[in-house]
C-alpha cells in the first residue's frame, strides 16, 4: 500500500498521514497538512481504513489505536 512498505513498516508518507489525523479531517485537509498529493492521500486513507489504523465517519478520517501503535513502533 502507499505509505507502508511491503514488510509492513510505516513509510515517511504514512507517518505524515497518521500524524495529522489526531483529530477528524477530510482527505483534502489531510493532504494540505501533510503536504502530500491528494490522490496519494485518498489511496493511503482507503488502505489504512481497511487495515483498521484509521476510522472513517462520513468524509472525515481519524487515527485509531492500531494506527497509534504503528506510530509508536517508529520511535
Amino acid at each position: 500500500m502507499p505509505c507502508v512498505s511491503s514488510d509492513g513498516r510505516l513509510m515517511e508518507s504514512g507517518r505524515k498521514l497518521l500524524t495529522v489525523l489526531d483529530q477528524p479531517r477530510t482527505a483534502e485537509e489531510t493532504a494540505s497538512l501533510a503536504l502530500l498529493p491528494l490522490f496519494s492521500v485518498r489511496a493511503g486513507l482507503r488502505q489504512m481504513v481497511e487495515a483498521g489504523w484509521v476510522a472513517q465517519v462520513g468524509l472525515h478520517f481519524q487515527i485509531q489505536e492500531a494506527g497509534r501503535q504503528k506510530l509508536r513502533e517508529l520511535v
Partner: peptide, 13 residues
C-alpha cells in the same frame, strides 16, 4: 510505483 491507485483518487483534479 506509488502503491495501488484508483482513477477515482484523482477526482477533482
Amino acid at each position: 510505483t506509488h502503491g495501488t491507485l484508483r482513477l477515482e483518487d484523482y477526482s477533482g483534479s
